[in-house]
Design a protein around this nucleic acid. Structure first.
Lengths: 251, 251
DNA sequence: TAGTCATTCTGGACTATACCAAAACCCGAA
DNA sequence: TTCGGGTTTTGGTATAGTCCAGAATGACTA
Protein backbone atom coordinates (compact mmCIF):
# COMPACT_ATOMS: atom_id res chain seq x y z
CA UNK A 1 0.00 0.00 0.00
CA UNK A 2 1.67 3.18 -1.17
CA UNK A 3 1.00 6.62 0.17
CA UNK A 4 -2.65 7.58 0.28
CA UNK A 5 -2.20 11.25 1.10
CA UNK A 6 0.15 13.94 2.27
CA UNK A 7 0.34 15.12 5.88
CA UNK A 8 -1.71 18.29 5.89
CA UNK A 9 -4.78 18.27 3.71
CA UNK A 10 -3.84 21.65 2.32
CA UNK A 11 -3.48 21.43 -1.42
CA UNK A 12 -0.31 23.50 -1.49
CA UNK A 13 2.73 21.86 -2.99
CA UNK A 14 5.77 24.05 -2.48
CA UNK A 15 4.31 26.38 0.12
CA UNK A 16 5.68 29.85 0.30
CA UNK A 17 8.44 29.99 2.89
CA UNK A 18 8.59 33.26 4.78
CA UNK A 19 11.89 35.04 4.82
CA UNK A 20 12.44 34.64 8.54
CA UNK A 21 12.16 30.86 8.23
CA UNK A 22 14.64 30.83 5.37
CA UNK A 23 16.99 32.86 7.53
CA UNK A 24 16.40 30.44 10.39
CA UNK A 25 17.40 27.57 8.11
CA UNK A 26 20.63 29.27 7.15
CA UNK A 27 21.63 29.82 10.77
CA UNK A 28 20.48 26.35 11.82
CA UNK A 29 22.64 24.86 9.10
CA UNK A 30 25.63 26.76 10.41
CA UNK A 31 25.02 25.28 13.83
CA UNK A 32 24.38 21.73 12.71
CA UNK A 33 27.35 21.69 10.38
CA UNK A 34 29.49 22.56 13.37
CA UNK A 35 30.62 25.90 12.02
CA UNK A 36 29.20 27.34 15.23
CA UNK A 37 30.21 25.31 18.30
CA UNK A 38 27.97 24.91 21.38
CA UNK A 39 28.53 27.92 23.59
CA UNK A 40 29.74 29.91 20.61
CA UNK A 41 28.38 33.33 19.87
CA UNK A 42 26.35 34.34 16.85
CA UNK A 43 26.98 37.57 14.98
CA UNK A 44 25.05 40.49 16.44
CA UNK A 45 21.55 41.26 15.19
CA UNK A 46 22.79 44.37 13.43
CA UNK A 47 25.57 42.40 11.77
CA UNK A 48 23.11 39.77 10.57
CA UNK A 49 21.05 42.64 9.26
CA UNK A 50 23.94 43.84 7.13
CA UNK A 51 24.71 40.30 5.96
CA UNK A 52 21.19 39.41 4.94
CA UNK A 53 19.66 42.73 4.05
CA UNK A 54 16.55 41.97 6.09
CA UNK A 55 15.09 44.33 8.69
CA UNK A 56 16.07 43.80 12.28
CA UNK A 57 12.54 42.70 13.20
CA UNK A 58 12.79 39.90 10.66
CA UNK A 59 16.20 38.87 11.96
CA UNK A 60 14.80 38.70 15.48
CA UNK A 61 11.86 36.62 14.29
CA UNK A 62 14.34 34.04 12.98
CA UNK A 63 16.33 34.12 16.23
CA UNK A 64 13.17 33.67 18.34
CA UNK A 65 12.31 30.67 16.22
CA UNK A 66 15.71 29.08 16.85
CA UNK A 67 15.39 29.90 20.52
CA UNK A 68 12.00 28.16 20.69
CA UNK A 69 13.58 25.12 19.10
CA UNK A 70 16.29 25.11 21.71
CA UNK A 71 19.13 25.62 19.24
CA UNK A 72 20.23 28.98 20.58
CA UNK A 73 19.72 31.10 23.66
CA UNK A 74 20.36 34.72 24.54
CA UNK A 75 22.14 36.58 27.25
CA UNK A 76 20.57 39.93 27.88
CA UNK A 77 22.35 42.69 26.01
CA UNK A 78 25.26 40.38 25.45
CA UNK A 79 24.39 38.30 22.44
CA UNK A 80 22.98 35.08 21.07
CA UNK A 81 24.74 31.79 21.80
CA UNK A 82 24.53 28.20 20.61
CA UNK A 83 22.78 26.00 23.19
CA UNK A 84 24.63 23.13 24.82
CA UNK A 85 22.86 19.75 24.61
CA UNK A 86 20.09 19.12 27.20
CA UNK A 87 20.41 16.70 30.11
CA UNK A 88 18.07 13.75 30.41
CA UNK A 89 15.94 13.56 33.50
CA UNK A 90 14.50 10.21 34.51
CA UNK A 91 11.85 10.74 37.17
CA UNK A 92 11.61 7.02 37.86
CA UNK A 93 15.15 7.01 39.17
CA UNK A 94 15.74 8.49 42.57
CA UNK A 95 19.05 10.04 41.68
CA UNK A 96 19.10 13.73 42.45
CA UNK A 97 20.13 16.60 40.23
CA UNK A 98 23.80 16.51 41.25
CA UNK A 99 24.01 12.80 40.48
CA UNK A 100 22.43 12.58 37.10
CA UNK A 101 24.04 15.72 35.76
CA UNK A 102 27.43 14.37 36.78
CA UNK A 103 26.64 11.01 35.22
CA UNK A 104 26.08 12.74 31.92
CA UNK A 105 29.52 14.26 32.02
CA UNK A 106 28.42 17.74 32.95
CA UNK A 107 29.17 19.88 35.97
CA UNK A 108 26.25 20.67 38.29
CA UNK A 109 26.08 23.37 40.91
CA UNK A 110 23.47 24.82 43.21
CA UNK A 111 22.88 28.25 44.71
CA UNK A 112 20.46 28.90 47.52
CA UNK A 113 18.68 32.15 46.72
CA UNK A 114 16.59 32.39 49.85
CA UNK A 115 15.26 30.50 52.85
CA UNK A 116 12.04 31.79 54.33
CA UNK A 117 9.37 30.82 56.76
CA UNK A 118 6.04 31.85 55.31
CA UNK A 119 2.36 31.35 56.16
CA UNK A 120 0.79 28.61 54.07
CA UNK A 121 -1.55 29.69 51.29
CA UNK A 122 -4.80 27.71 51.19
CA UNK A 123 -3.73 25.54 48.24
CA UNK A 124 -0.40 24.65 49.85
CA UNK A 125 -1.93 24.14 53.30
CA UNK A 126 -4.23 21.62 51.69
CA UNK A 127 -1.31 19.67 50.27
CA UNK A 128 0.47 19.56 53.63
CA UNK A 129 -2.78 18.97 55.52
CA UNK A 130 -2.09 21.85 57.89
CA UNK A 131 -4.22 24.86 58.78
CA UNK A 132 -4.02 27.76 56.32
CA UNK A 133 -1.58 30.29 57.67
CA UNK A 134 0.66 27.72 59.38
CA UNK A 135 4.34 28.50 58.99
CA UNK A 136 6.19 26.51 56.34
CA UNK A 137 9.79 26.57 55.18
CA UNK A 138 10.25 27.77 51.63
CA UNK A 139 13.65 27.37 50.04
CA UNK A 140 14.41 28.94 46.70
CA UNK A 141 17.34 27.56 44.79
CA UNK A 142 18.93 27.95 41.42
CA UNK A 143 20.68 25.05 39.78
CA UNK A 144 23.27 25.27 37.06
CA UNK A 145 24.90 23.02 34.54
CA UNK A 146 28.38 23.99 33.41
CA UNK A 147 27.81 27.38 34.98
CA UNK A 148 24.58 28.12 33.13
CA UNK A 149 21.35 28.40 35.12
CA UNK A 150 18.88 25.75 33.97
CA UNK A 151 16.21 25.75 36.66
CA UNK A 152 14.83 27.72 39.56
CA UNK A 153 13.02 25.74 42.21
CA UNK A 154 10.85 26.58 45.16
CA UNK A 155 10.81 23.86 47.78
CA UNK A 156 8.28 23.79 50.59
CA UNK A 157 8.89 21.72 53.73
CA UNK A 158 6.87 21.40 56.92
CA UNK A 159 8.99 22.62 59.90
CA UNK A 160 7.28 20.11 62.14
CA UNK A 161 8.92 17.30 60.19
CA UNK A 162 12.29 18.97 59.79
CA UNK A 163 12.84 21.56 62.53
CA UNK A 164 15.87 23.76 61.95
CA UNK A 165 16.29 22.62 58.37
CA UNK A 166 17.50 26.03 57.26
CA UNK A 167 20.56 25.77 59.53
CA UNK A 168 22.03 23.24 57.12
CA UNK A 169 23.84 24.01 53.92
CA UNK A 170 21.21 23.59 51.27
CA UNK A 171 23.50 23.64 48.28
CA UNK A 172 23.58 19.88 47.98
CA UNK A 173 20.89 17.24 48.00
CA UNK A 174 17.95 18.25 50.15
CA UNK A 175 16.40 14.82 50.06
CA UNK A 176 19.68 13.55 51.46
CA UNK A 177 19.50 15.92 54.42
CA UNK A 178 15.87 15.08 55.12
CA UNK A 179 16.76 11.42 55.13
CA UNK A 180 19.97 11.44 57.15
CA UNK A 181 19.15 14.17 59.68
CA UNK A 182 15.43 13.75 60.12
CA UNK A 183 14.84 10.12 59.16
CA UNK A 184 12.37 11.10 56.49
CA UNK A 185 12.33 8.42 53.81
CA UNK A 186 10.48 9.10 50.59
CA UNK A 187 8.57 6.10 49.30
CA UNK A 188 6.29 7.81 46.86
CA UNK A 189 6.64 10.59 44.37
CA UNK A 190 3.96 12.40 42.47
CA UNK A 191 4.98 14.53 39.52
CA UNK A 192 3.15 16.93 37.29
CA UNK A 193 4.77 18.38 34.22
CA UNK A 194 3.52 20.99 31.88
CA UNK A 195 4.92 23.39 29.37
CA UNK A 196 4.60 26.93 30.61
CA UNK A 197 5.91 30.43 30.13
CA UNK A 198 8.48 31.62 32.63
CA UNK A 199 7.15 34.52 34.66
CA UNK A 200 9.17 37.59 35.61
CA UNK A 201 10.70 36.36 38.89
CA UNK A 202 11.79 33.02 37.57
CA UNK A 203 12.89 34.42 34.23
CA UNK A 204 15.12 36.91 36.04
CA UNK A 205 16.64 34.08 38.08
CA UNK A 206 17.40 32.18 34.89
CA UNK A 207 18.62 35.24 33.06
CA UNK A 208 16.02 34.94 30.33
CA UNK A 209 13.26 37.20 29.12
CA UNK A 210 9.88 36.88 30.84
CA UNK A 211 7.62 34.72 28.72
CA UNK A 212 10.34 32.41 27.45
CA UNK A 213 8.90 28.91 27.19
CA UNK A 214 9.81 26.55 30.00
CA UNK A 215 8.77 23.34 31.67
CA UNK A 216 7.18 23.31 35.10
CA UNK A 217 7.81 20.12 37.05
CA UNK A 218 5.93 19.83 40.34
CA UNK A 219 7.10 17.02 42.59
CA UNK A 220 5.36 15.90 45.76
CA UNK A 221 7.37 13.47 47.89
CA UNK A 222 5.57 11.35 50.44
CA UNK A 223 6.84 9.09 53.20
CA UNK A 224 5.44 5.76 54.35
CA UNK A 225 2.77 7.41 56.46
CA UNK A 226 1.65 9.46 53.50
CA UNK A 227 3.02 12.70 54.93
CA UNK A 228 4.28 15.28 52.46
CA UNK A 229 8.02 15.44 53.03
CA UNK A 230 8.86 17.84 50.24
CA UNK A 231 6.85 19.88 47.78
CA UNK A 232 9.00 21.09 44.93
CA UNK A 233 8.15 23.39 42.04
CA UNK A 234 10.89 23.32 39.42
CA UNK A 235 10.95 25.80 36.56
CA UNK A 236 13.23 24.53 33.83
CA UNK A 237 14.59 26.24 30.78
CA UNK A 238 12.87 24.40 27.99
CA UNK A 239 16.07 23.69 26.13
CA UNK A 240 17.83 22.10 29.09
CA UNK A 241 15.61 19.19 29.95
CA UNK A 242 14.43 15.97 28.45
CA UNK A 243 12.27 13.63 30.48
CA UNK A 244 12.53 9.88 30.14
CA UNK A 245 10.14 7.34 31.62
CA UNK A 246 10.46 3.57 31.36
CA UNK A 247 7.41 1.59 32.38
CA UNK A 248 6.69 -2.08 32.74
CA UNK A 249 3.21 -3.52 33.05
CA UNK A 250 2.83 -5.05 36.48
CA UNK A 251 1.27 -8.52 36.50
CA UNK B 1 14.13 32.28 60.68
CA UNK B 2 12.61 35.04 58.61
CA UNK B 3 13.47 35.82 55.01
CA UNK B 4 17.17 36.07 54.32
CA UNK B 5 16.96 37.41 50.78
CA UNK B 6 14.74 38.09 47.81
CA UNK B 7 14.45 35.74 44.86
CA UNK B 8 16.66 37.29 42.22
CA UNK B 9 19.82 38.92 43.40
CA UNK B 10 19.15 41.90 41.18
CA UNK B 11 18.98 45.00 43.31
CA UNK B 12 15.94 46.38 41.52
CA UNK B 13 12.89 46.96 43.69
CA UNK B 14 9.96 48.02 41.54
CA UNK B 15 11.39 47.08 38.16
CA UNK B 16 10.11 48.89 35.13
CA UNK B 17 7.27 46.95 33.55
CA UNK B 18 7.24 47.14 29.76
CA UNK B 19 4.03 48.23 28.14
CA UNK B 20 3.36 44.91 26.46
CA UNK B 21 3.43 43.13 29.82
CA UNK B 22 1.02 45.64 31.30
CA UNK B 23 -1.26 45.02 28.36
CA UNK B 24 -0.87 41.30 28.87
CA UNK B 25 -1.97 41.71 32.47
CA UNK B 26 -5.07 43.61 31.45
CA UNK B 27 -6.14 40.93 29.01
CA UNK B 28 -5.21 38.11 31.41
CA UNK B 29 -7.37 39.71 34.05
CA UNK B 30 -10.29 39.80 31.66
CA UNK B 31 -9.85 36.09 31.07
CA UNK B 32 -9.38 35.09 34.68
CA UNK B 33 -12.28 37.18 35.87
CA UNK B 34 -14.45 35.23 33.48
CA UNK B 35 -15.36 38.21 31.34
CA UNK B 36 -13.94 36.22 28.46
CA UNK B 37 -15.17 32.60 28.47
CA UNK B 38 -13.02 29.68 27.24
CA UNK B 39 -13.49 29.43 23.50
CA UNK B 40 -14.51 33.08 23.40
CA UNK B 41 -12.94 35.45 20.93
CA UNK B 42 -10.80 38.44 21.76
CA UNK B 43 -11.19 41.76 20.01
CA UNK B 44 -9.14 41.97 16.82
CA UNK B 45 -5.59 43.27 16.98
CA UNK B 46 -6.61 46.47 15.27
CA UNK B 47 -9.45 46.97 17.71
CA UNK B 48 -7.10 46.47 20.67
CA UNK B 49 -4.86 49.00 19.00
CA UNK B 50 -7.64 51.57 19.04
CA UNK B 51 -8.58 50.71 22.62
CA UNK B 52 -5.09 50.92 24.06
CA UNK B 53 -3.35 53.37 21.77
CA UNK B 54 -0.32 51.09 21.46
CA UNK B 55 1.22 50.11 18.14
CA UNK B 56 0.11 46.85 16.62
CA UNK B 57 3.53 45.31 17.16
CA UNK B 58 3.21 45.94 20.86
CA UNK B 59 -0.29 44.47 20.91
CA UNK B 60 1.01 41.35 19.21
CA UNK B 61 3.87 41.08 21.69
CA UNK B 62 1.30 40.93 24.49
CA UNK B 63 -0.77 38.34 22.62
CA UNK B 64 2.29 36.16 21.95
CA UNK B 65 3.07 36.29 25.65
CA UNK B 66 -0.42 35.10 26.55
CA UNK B 67 -0.15 32.42 23.90
CA UNK B 68 3.13 31.17 25.39
CA UNK B 69 1.43 30.96 28.76
CA UNK B 70 -1.35 28.90 27.28
CA UNK B 71 -4.09 31.40 28.08
CA UNK B 72 -5.04 32.11 24.49
CA UNK B 73 -4.49 30.62 21.06
CA UNK B 74 -4.95 31.84 17.54
CA UNK B 75 -6.72 30.64 14.46
CA UNK B 76 -4.99 31.84 11.38
CA UNK B 77 -6.60 34.94 9.95
CA UNK B 78 -9.63 34.34 12.08
CA UNK B 79 -8.76 35.73 15.47
CA UNK B 80 -7.48 35.10 18.98
CA UNK B 81 -9.44 32.82 21.33
CA UNK B 82 -9.38 31.91 24.99
CA UNK B 83 -7.81 28.46 25.50
CA UNK B 84 -9.90 25.67 26.97
CA UNK B 85 -8.34 23.90 29.98
CA UNK B 86 -5.69 21.22 29.20
CA UNK B 87 -6.27 17.50 29.61
CA UNK B 88 -4.14 15.52 32.01
CA UNK B 89 -2.14 12.70 30.56
CA UNK B 90 -0.94 9.94 32.83
CA UNK B 91 1.64 7.85 30.98
CA UNK B 92 1.61 5.21 33.70
CA UNK B 93 -1.95 4.32 32.91
CA UNK B 94 -2.60 2.32 29.79
CA UNK B 95 -5.79 4.11 28.92
CA UNK B 96 -5.62 5.46 25.40
CA UNK B 97 -6.36 8.97 24.20
CA UNK B 98 -10.06 8.31 23.60
CA UNK B 99 -10.50 6.94 27.10
CA UNK B 100 -8.82 9.54 29.20
CA UNK B 101 -10.17 12.47 27.27
CA UNK B 102 -13.68 11.11 27.71
CA UNK B 103 -13.04 10.52 31.41
CA UNK B 104 -12.26 14.19 31.78
CA UNK B 105 -15.60 15.16 30.34
CA UNK B 106 -14.31 16.20 26.96
CA UNK B 107 -15.04 14.88 23.48
CA UNK B 108 -12.14 13.20 21.67
CA UNK B 109 -11.91 12.44 17.97
CA UNK B 110 -9.27 11.15 15.60
CA UNK B 111 -8.52 11.71 11.93
CA UNK B 112 -6.15 9.58 9.93
CA UNK B 113 -4.16 11.90 7.70
CA UNK B 114 -2.16 9.29 5.86
CA UNK B 115 -1.04 5.69 5.83
CA UNK B 116 2.19 4.95 4.05
CA UNK B 117 4.74 2.22 3.60
CA UNK B 118 8.16 3.79 3.65
CA UNK B 119 11.76 2.58 3.72
CA UNK B 120 13.25 2.73 7.21
CA UNK B 121 15.72 5.50 7.91
CA UNK B 122 18.86 4.30 9.73
CA UNK B 123 17.74 5.64 13.12
CA UNK B 124 14.31 4.04 12.87
CA UNK B 125 15.69 0.81 11.47
CA UNK B 126 17.88 0.62 14.52
CA UNK B 127 14.90 0.93 16.86
CA UNK B 128 13.00 -1.83 15.05
CA UNK B 129 16.14 -3.92 14.58
CA UNK B 130 15.55 -4.29 10.86
CA UNK B 131 17.83 -3.55 7.94
CA UNK B 132 17.91 0.10 6.87
CA UNK B 133 15.59 0.51 3.90
CA UNK B 134 13.14 -2.19 5.05
CA UNK B 135 9.53 -1.21 4.51
CA UNK B 136 7.64 0.03 7.54
CA UNK B 137 4.08 1.26 8.01
CA UNK B 138 3.83 4.90 8.95
CA UNK B 139 0.45 6.21 10.05
CA UNK B 140 -0.09 9.92 10.55
CA UNK B 141 -3.04 10.93 12.65
CA UNK B 142 -4.49 14.08 14.11
CA UNK B 143 -6.37 13.95 17.40
CA UNK B 144 -8.85 16.52 18.57
CA UNK B 145 -10.54 17.52 21.78
CA UNK B 146 -13.91 19.22 21.47
CA UNK B 147 -13.19 19.71 17.80
CA UNK B 148 -9.84 21.43 18.29
CA UNK B 149 -6.67 19.71 17.08
CA UNK B 150 -4.34 19.09 20.02
CA UNK B 151 -1.77 16.69 18.63
CA UNK B 152 -0.36 15.23 15.46
CA UNK B 153 1.25 11.84 15.72
CA UNK B 154 3.35 9.70 13.48
CA UNK B 155 3.14 6.02 14.32
CA UNK B 156 5.56 3.49 12.91
CA UNK B 157 4.75 -0.23 12.91
CA UNK B 158 6.62 -3.20 11.49
CA UNK B 159 4.49 -4.85 8.78
CA UNK B 160 5.97 -8.22 9.69
CA UNK B 161 4.22 -8.01 13.06
CA UNK B 162 0.98 -6.56 11.78
CA UNK B 163 0.49 -7.41 8.08
CA UNK B 164 -2.38 -5.57 6.45
CA UNK B 165 -2.75 -3.17 9.35
CA UNK B 166 -3.71 -0.32 7.08
CA UNK B 167 -6.83 -2.17 5.95
CA UNK B 168 -8.38 -1.46 9.33
CA UNK B 169 -10.03 1.76 10.37
CA UNK B 170 -7.35 3.60 12.29
CA UNK B 171 -9.55 6.26 13.79
CA UNK B 172 -9.84 4.48 17.11
CA UNK B 173 -7.31 2.85 19.38
CA UNK B 174 -4.40 1.44 17.44
CA UNK B 175 -3.07 -0.46 20.43
CA UNK B 176 -6.46 -2.12 20.62
CA UNK B 177 -6.23 -3.30 17.02
CA UNK B 178 -2.69 -4.58 17.46
CA UNK B 179 -3.80 -6.53 20.48
CA UNK B 180 -7.08 -8.00 19.25
CA UNK B 181 -6.17 -8.68 15.61
CA UNK B 182 -2.49 -9.50 15.85
CA UNK B 183 -2.09 -10.74 19.41
CA UNK B 184 0.53 -8.11 20.16
CA UNK B 185 0.47 -7.32 23.85
CA UNK B 186 2.47 -4.37 25.12
CA UNK B 187 4.25 -5.06 28.40
CA UNK B 188 6.72 -2.22 28.38
CA UNK B 189 6.60 1.40 27.40
CA UNK B 190 9.46 3.83 27.03
CA UNK B 191 8.66 7.50 26.83
CA UNK B 192 10.70 10.57 26.08
CA UNK B 193 9.28 14.01 26.53
CA UNK B 194 10.75 17.32 25.65
CA UNK B 195 9.58 20.81 24.96
CA UNK B 196 10.08 21.69 21.33
CA UNK B 197 9.01 24.06 18.62
CA UNK B 198 6.44 22.76 16.18
CA UNK B 199 7.89 22.54 12.71
CA UNK B 200 6.04 23.54 9.55
CA UNK B 201 4.33 20.22 8.72
CA UNK B 202 3.06 19.58 12.22
CA UNK B 203 2.16 23.20 12.82
CA UNK B 204 0.04 23.17 9.66
CA UNK B 205 -1.72 20.04 10.87
CA UNK B 206 -2.52 21.71 14.17
CA UNK B 207 -3.46 24.97 12.54
CA UNK B 208 -0.81 26.95 14.38
CA UNK B 209 2.11 29.03 13.22
CA UNK B 210 5.40 27.20 12.68
CA UNK B 211 7.58 27.68 15.72
CA UNK B 212 4.80 27.65 18.27
CA UNK B 213 6.03 25.88 21.39
CA UNK B 214 4.89 22.30 21.80
CA UNK B 215 5.67 19.09 23.62
CA UNK B 216 7.15 16.12 21.84
CA UNK B 217 6.27 12.78 23.40
CA UNK B 218 8.01 9.76 21.91
CA UNK B 219 6.60 6.39 22.99
CA UNK B 220 8.17 3.05 22.24
CA UNK B 221 5.94 0.07 23.04
CA UNK B 222 7.53 -3.33 23.49
CA UNK B 223 6.03 -6.78 23.82
CA UNK B 224 7.18 -9.66 26.02
CA UNK B 225 9.88 -10.67 23.56
CA UNK B 226 11.22 -7.15 23.50
CA UNK B 227 10.00 -6.49 19.98
CA UNK B 228 8.99 -2.94 19.13
CA UNK B 229 5.25 -3.12 18.56
CA UNK B 230 4.63 0.56 18.08
CA UNK B 231 6.85 3.63 17.77
CA UNK B 232 4.87 6.79 18.25
CA UNK B 233 5.96 10.41 17.93
CA UNK B 234 3.30 12.73 19.34
CA UNK B 235 3.49 16.47 18.82
CA UNK B 236 1.23 18.21 21.31
CA UNK B 237 0.07 21.76 21.50
CA UNK B 238 1.78 23.01 24.61
CA UNK B 239 -1.41 24.37 26.12
CA UNK B 240 -3.34 21.13 25.79
CA UNK B 241 -1.32 18.69 27.83
CA UNK B 242 -0.29 18.13 31.38
CA UNK B 243 1.65 15.01 32.29
CA UNK B 244 1.17 13.26 35.59
CA UNK B 245 3.35 10.51 36.99
CA UNK B 246 2.81 8.70 40.29
CA UNK B 247 5.70 6.57 41.47
CA UNK B 248 6.16 4.22 44.38
CA UNK B 249 9.49 2.90 45.53
CA UNK B 250 9.57 -0.81 44.95
CA UNK B 251 10.86 -2.85 47.85
C1' DT C 1 -32.99 26.28 -0.80
C1' DA C 2 -28.38 25.74 -1.82
C1' DG C 3 -24.48 27.22 -4.02
C1' DT C 4 -21.33 30.93 -5.79
C1' DC C 5 -18.78 35.07 -5.79
C1' DA C 6 -17.16 39.50 -4.42
C1' DT C 7 -16.19 42.20 -0.41
C1' DT C 8 -14.53 42.95 4.09
C1' DC C 9 -11.96 41.69 8.01
C1' DT C 10 -8.19 39.38 10.24
C1' DG C 11 -3.80 37.87 11.26
C1' DG C 12 1.07 37.17 8.88
C1' DA C 13 5.12 39.22 7.19
C1' DC C 14 8.12 42.95 6.45
C1' DT C 15 10.47 47.62 6.40
C1' DA C 16 12.54 51.57 8.60
C1' DT C 17 13.21 54.12 12.47
C1' DA C 18 14.12 55.69 17.30
C1' DC C 19 15.57 55.60 22.01
C1' DC C 20 16.99 53.11 26.28
C1' DA C 21 19.68 50.38 29.68
C1' DA C 22 22.81 47.01 30.54
C1' DA C 23 26.84 44.48 29.09
C1' DA C 24 31.25 44.52 27.19
C1' DC C 25 35.30 46.73 26.12
C1' DC C 26 39.21 49.60 26.38
C1' DC C 27 42.23 52.87 28.19
C1' DG C 28 44.37 55.35 31.69
C1' DA C 29 45.43 55.93 36.66
C1' DA C 30 46.90 53.92 41.04
C1' DT D 1 48.86 44.28 37.86
C1' DT D 2 44.43 45.89 39.22
C1' DC D 3 40.87 49.01 39.61
C1' DG D 4 37.69 52.89 37.71
C1' DG D 5 35.35 55.21 34.49
C1' DG D 6 33.95 56.52 30.07
C1' DT D 7 32.74 54.72 25.32
C1' DT D 8 30.85 51.43 22.28
C1' DT D 9 28.05 47.59 21.33
C1' DT D 10 24.18 44.80 22.09
C1' DG D 11 19.70 43.38 22.78
C1' DG D 12 14.88 45.30 24.48
C1' DT D 13 11.02 48.07 23.58
C1' DA D 14 8.11 50.85 20.83
C1' DT D 15 6.18 53.43 16.76
C1' DA D 16 4.05 53.72 12.15
C1' DG D 17 3.47 52.27 8.21
C1' DT D 18 2.83 48.66 3.90
C1' DC D 19 1.29 44.70 1.41
C1' DC D 20 -0.56 39.99 1.29
C1' DA D 21 -3.46 35.72 1.60
C1' DG D 22 -6.83 33.28 3.81
C1' DA D 23 -11.21 33.36 6.69
C1' DA D 24 -15.64 35.06 7.29
C1' DT D 25 -19.61 37.19 5.65
C1' DG D 26 -23.38 38.45 3.15
C1' DA D 27 -25.70 39.37 -1.04
C1' DC D 28 -26.92 37.50 -5.31
C1' DT D 29 -28.01 33.66 -8.40
C1' DA D 30 -29.51 29.23 -10.14
Amino acid sequence: MPSTSALPDTGKEAAHVPQYLALRDRIAEGIESGKLAPGGRLPSERQLQLDSGAARGTIREALFQLEAEGLIYRRDRSGWYVSPPPVTYDPTRWAGFMTYVTEQGRTPSTETLSTEEVPAAPAVADIFRVAPGSRLYVVTRRRLIDGRAVLVERITVDPKLAPGLCEHSLNGSLTQILSSHYGLAVVRNRMDMRPCALVKDVADGLGVKAGTPGLLVVRTSLDKQGRVVEYDQEYWRHDSIRVHVDLTVKD
